[in-house]
Design a protein around this nucleic acid. Structure first.
Lengths: 340, 340
DNA sequence: GTGAAAGCGCTAACAG
DNA sequence: CTGTTAGCGCTTTCAC
């Protein structure tokens, strides 16, 4: 072959100017029906495909949204992306999806790449390692629209789509208390992730409201590995004053907890009750089924796009960063309720 | 702000030509150290970012690989992509990830988009719906490098990375037979997916070799929904001559099968034994743990990139399409073996 | 209706 | 060492 067919090739063949071809292809007015037909037919015959890079370059917009998530392997992220994509397509945009694998370095290079003219705006959920936010403020200074979802940076003024983590943790713990738990542990995620901190607040709030003491030794930080949760549970359960309820920051970790409890022959929910977050499909197939906080993944995706497009397509000078806080929903299953 | 800083802005400010700036930025020889320093300093100060579209346009290569998969929500695909990304980054390439949601239409538009100059080549796993392959041959005619993995098209000459589906199904069924199964059903996936057909061959091969009859009523095609597997299992188990072993085309469907069996109070593995494909993490946390065929996801990813880059970066005229067939590994767990 | 020309941001000869 | 020129493929005035 050699090279792709261009507008120029068609123009030459038809003895017209490239401008004319361009007009025909884009269905603009002011073109003779015959010329147009000629162009379209040849374009079809030659399987002409417009070069998006060229178009984007001259229009200085790409009709593409950049997505940065920690890990596509997480149900949460792949599902949100599915809904982001749906909304984007509907609005005539494509997606450029990247992942950081929870690495700050990778986040840096991804941001940089995307900000080199590849996308009109970026939707991001921060890596676990990220505690320096200069790369993000730099983006904003350069005028590149940015929307956070889930894992955000509290200090940055930007559009954000969050769930009410504090409230959902509060409700989860309250649920445990109502089911008889007196001593509730919290397996939190990594320490510097905003989501964990917000949930801790809700956890504490519920305990205090019920007149239960907050025991710092019952709050354990960790990574996102199942095995860490497993060993932490072992430790937790070997103390003399062991918990009768556990709030776990994610379903993944919850499975680590269940594994440990099974090893220790501690029954769930009879001896210990558990609630976790995300409501992944696995919650309903594992035994015992897991009570989990369900997040509105469709809305998170849809609204992220909405807020980003609002910035991108703003006709009117400024756009105020808008923060959406969505409600969650506790899905009660076996792991937290008495067997009947 | 208005617009991004360009090479021209820097040139103007420093009273040099854009060529000089370009040289300095790209660390080319033939440039005075002082000029270079001047340029680099200003570029840093102004947070200059090269426009990738412009570079790609002039070089007519993007250093980006397009990825098309049916669904990022599948463990198989998100994990393969993780390894594709690793290999790509190592080779200096970025990824443009898209998904079809198993829709032929979406595959069409994704292919088209990517082929409009956005990527140097494409790695694809076909959608379930795809039975017309013109969009792919058209790609090839236009000289755009293409590599298939997992779900491929047998009739197209192209580089492919596959696993030995026939052999792995053969081994899986043989394993069931060795564990006492006499009447083995096969929950295959969608009918027109190459993977399913290959596995069916292996299934039949193992039965015939053991002198067991092949009963067509034991081979059930379906979609990829857990619930379909569940209802199919109900049907299967209500026949008078029900199976004592089931080969399931994916772990997802296997969970549907387990659900149905639990509802029917049929014990696994005592009454029925089961083997499935993919070896997702869930296999080891569900009860009973699932015997499953593990695929070399890292190699699939790595080799896909390798074969694609071989085509992209070929110096020497032609490149022969290369088909890699990788070995799988049966991971034996509770669902297929006698309890002790 | 159509064409010529300029330009998006950058690279790549080719002079000097 | 540095500048000039042309051009990647396309859109967009502005003439005619």
């Amino acid at each position: 072959m050699g090279h792709q067919v261009t507008i120029k090739d068609i123009a030459k063949q038809l003895n017209v100017s490239v401008a004319t071809v361009s007009r025909a292809l884009r269905d603009l007015p002011d073109i003779h029906p015959d010329t147009k037909k000629l162009v379209l037919d040849l374009a079809k015959e030659w399987d002409y495909q417009p070069n998006l890079l060229a178009t984007s370059l001259v229009k200085s917009k790409t009709k593409t949204l950049g997505i940065i998530v920690p890990d596509l392997g997480y149900y949460f992220f792949s599902t949100v992306i599915k809904h982001i994509e749906e909304a984007a397509i509907k609005a005539g945009y494509s997606l450029l999806i990247t992942q950081t694998q929870e690495s700050y370095e990778r986040e840096l290079t991804n941001i940089q790449n995307l900000s080199r003219g590849q996308v009109d705006g970026i939707i991001i959920s921060l890596s676990r390692e990220t505690s320096n936010f200069e790369h993000l403020t730099r983006l904003q200074r350069r005028g590149i629209p940015l929307v956070f979802f889930d894992r955000n940076c509290e200090d940055i003024q930007a559009s954000k789509v969050m769930v009410d983590n504090e409230q959902s943790a509060y409700e989860a713990v309250k649920h445990l208390i109502e089911n008889g738990c007196k001593r509730i542990a919290f397996l939190a995620g990594p320490k510097n992730v905003s989501v964990s901190n917000q949930r801790r607040l809700g956890y504490i709030h519920a305990l205090e409201e019920a007149g239960l003491s907050v025991d710092p030794s019952l709050i354990l930080h960790s990574d996102y590995y199942q095995d860490t949760a497993r060993s932490q549970t072992h430790l937790l359960m070997q103390s003399d004053n062991r918990p009768d309820g556990i709030l776990v920051v994610s379903d993944r970790l919850a499975i680590g907890v269940l594994t440990a409890l099974k090893e220790l022959k501690i029954r769930v929910p009879e001896d210990v009750k558990m609630v976790s977050f995300n409501n992944e499909p696995i919650c309903q197939v594992i035994s015992p089924t897991i009570t989990s906080v369900s997040q509105p993944l469709d809305e998170i995706g849809r609204i992220s796009v909405e807020l980003l497009l609002a910035q991108i397509e703003q006709k009117t000078g400024e756009s105020i960063p808008k923060v959406e806080v969505l409600k969650t929903n506790l899905v009660v299953r076996e792991s937290s309720t008495k067997r009947n």
